[in-house]
Simulated assay, not measured.
Amino acid sequence: MIGEDGYFGEGVARRYDESSSDMFLPGIVDTAVDVLEDLAAGGTALELGIGTGRIALPLSQRGVKVRGIDLSRAMVARLHAKPGGGAIDVTIGDFSTTQVPDTFSLVYSVFNTITNLTSQEAQVACFRNVARHLAPGGRFVVEVEVPEIRKLPPGHRIVPLYTSPTQWAFDVYDTATQSMTSNYIEVVDGRGENQSIPFRYVWPSELDLMARLAGLRLFQRWGGWTRHAFTHESTKHVSVYEKAED
């Protein structure tokens, strides 16, 4: 049963930083924060799905005032328990619809967070919600993987992620609905545990259309936080959308 924290309840929150440890490496975090600090341009920032503060904490340490929206109280509790985390204001709620009483020069969604919205309607609503929160000239940054369906052999729906004697992980795709689930199986002391989390993968061009529906325009797109070119071989993209000046 899914609780009030969605799919990121206490069990996930407790292990999240460790299970995503590669994404916490200084080289990865610092490169992303460099870009976000630059785009904030001395203004304030709002993170969608702020989680345990992987990006928000170092960005706030650069002097950028950061607020957050997140559905999971368990994840936010870990953010607030970290040094400096208590100073970051977080509103609990669905970031596709939840509003905070401020406007921002930067709103950002990193590490595939937008795919946690499992319908096209919710993703469109997210862009419209972002537009409401952006000051004129403000930017919306989305970091998300390019859908990996090229890895699917004809007639297959499963992409393996990793295997070990005690751990297995795989994604299951439905190309008719653009839905997918990430599945994790772990055996501890002879007992198996399974977790399945739903997502909706989304194409770059589809995101661009969502942005246009919300009154935003594509400002820049890179193949990653180092701002290298986005090509047909890119496995992810960092897309920057802009709200027009009044």
Results as ranks from 00 to 15, higher is better:
G3D: 15
D5G: 00
G9L: 12
V12E: 07
V12P: 04
A13F: 00
R14M: 02
E18I: 14
S19V: 15
S21E: 15
D22Y: 15
G27V: 07
T31C: 15
V35W: 13
D38Q: 11
A40C: 13
G42T: 10
A45D: 03
L48S: 06
G49M: 00
S60I: 04
Q61H: 08
K65W: 04
R67W: 07
I69P: 00
S72D: 05
V76H: 04
R78V: 01
H80P: 02
A81W: 01
A81C: 01
K82F: 02
G84H: 04
G86Q: 05
G86C: 03
D89K: 15
V90C: 05
V90L: 02
I92R: 14
T97V: 15
D102R: 11
T103D: 11
F104L: 00
Q120N: 12
Q120M: 09
E121N: 04
A122W: 02
V124W: 08
V124S: 08
A125Q: 02
P136I: 10
P136V: 11
G137E: 13
R139N: 07
F140R: 05
V146S: 06
K151D: 07
P154A: 06
R157D: 13
I158S: 12
L161E: 09
T163H: 12
T163N: 13
S164D: 08
T166D: 14
W168E: 12
F170H: 05
D171W: 06
Q178N: 14
S179R: 15
M180C: 06
Y184L: 13
Y184M: 13
E186N: 09
D189P: 05
G190M: 14
N194Y: 10
N194A: 10
S196R: 11
L209S: 10
L209T: 09
A211E: 06
R212K: 10
R212P: 00
L213Q: 14
L218N: 01
A229W: 06
F230D: 05
H232V: 08
H237E: 12
H237R: 09
Y241N: 01
D246Q: 15
